[in-house]
Amino acid sequence: MNNMLELRINGFGGQGSVTLAHLLAQAALENGNQGQALPFFGVERRGAPVRAAVRMSPTAIHAHSQCERPDYVVVMSEKLTEAAISEGITDIGTVIINAPHAVAVKSHATWQVDADTIAREAGLISADGPFINIPLFGAVCRVLDIPQNIMEQTILNKWPGNNGERNLGAAGKAYNTVTRINK
């Protein structure tokens, strides 16, 4: 990594975007870089659109704004794709979409992962639905070329014990099945 990399997560309240942002920042540190997770906290409720900024950099991070033109946009629900892109992304940016089938954004390089199915199959389900942030963490690490062992160590640091093991399976599956759709 030569320069600061910026990423924005667009999701719905309750999908675990804050934890996803924290995991990614922690993975950056685990990978020998600086990391920052800056979720936007509003007066949102479950189901309302939410967003979080994540930064990774080989040197100290001084930015404290939300990412207005990030290098990567993570779309936690396919329904949000258009809205997420319209919030801003660099011209050469990459989009990572959680969807059950191949989807592509014409203007940008797109990766797709079926985080819902992976989370359900791993038994990562709450009353509100699957914990899609765990597979999405695996998928984003793969797209960012963060080594799988760094991804796994980050999960085990956060959840020592059985929960960590279950999360590892789901994150690993997403790491290995996230697919580049175009460009």
Binding site: A21, Q26, Q36, L38, F40, I61, H64
Partner: peptide, 9 residues
């Protein structure tokens, strides 16, 4: 938020 809820090293 910009500092209080920002996760950093």
């Amino acid at each position: 938020f910009a500092i209080s809820h920002c996760l950093m090293p």
